[in-house]
Design a protein around this nucleic acid. Sequence first.
DNA 1: CCTTAGTCCTGCATGC
DNA 2: TGCATGCAGGACTAAG
Length: 266
Amino acid sequence: MPELPEVETVVRELMPLEGERIAKLEASWERTLDGGLEHFQERLLGARVDSVWRRGKYICLDLSSKCTLTIHLRMTGKCLFELGEKDSPYERVRLDFASGTQLHFVDVRKFGRWKIWAPDQLLPELGVEATSAAAVQEALTELNSRREIKKVLLDQRVLAGVGNIYADEALFMAGIHPTVPANRLKSQAIKDLAQAIAKVLQASIDNMGTTLSDYRNTRNIGGENQNYLQVYGQSGLNCLHCDQKIVKITLGGRGTHFCPRCQPEP
DNA sequence: CCTTAGTCCTGCATGC
DNA sequence: TGCATGCAGGACTAAG
């Protein structure tokens, strides 16, 4: 599932869209477009893409029509410059640019969402960028919540960009059990965790993201970071650090993987 | 304020 | 082989 590193990989590849003008917008699954097709056509047709950037797990396109288009890939969303035969049944939205460039939004599970925002009210609820260790350390220190630390890491209002895979990986790297209440972490543990998050995310960006099943970049190529996961999806296998068996539990409805020896119970 | 359950979706793995 | 069941999950909403 696409999280911050996967979205960052896609955003870098979408940068060449800057300066392009939108000529046509079609949707074969209209619910992808929050507000409906007509609402999107009013704002998008004829507009120029001024800049492409990322905020948390959102792809952001600033448009000359004084608004920002966000694309959230959710579980299975893909932005492709070329549509292959296998993906064709799952194309939900297509953007045609004046130059002839096409952007195909493919999404098997239909969870992905496009949304248009006025510039001064873009993503107001989103927390600090998870890539900034200093900002994450400060946010976790100020939070003072009794919730389990993993649930906090997944809360986009606190940190923007961490999902299920990197939450598990970062907690392993920092040696913290996923069910520890967030406000019971000592300041050193918070510092270790903030640095582990930044490190895990950067390593995955360097590896073009994690592809477990659906994630692909704009050229329909998967990442390599799945080859370096320490705990996520590794339940039953031996910990690479201490040889203890990796355990999987359910926490907040999500699969949660950890090493009982490297990440001792609170 | 908090937490939990339900919703959206479909492909794939599992079991008989 | 075929059919039924359940699982995966990010963000949002409703209920308690």
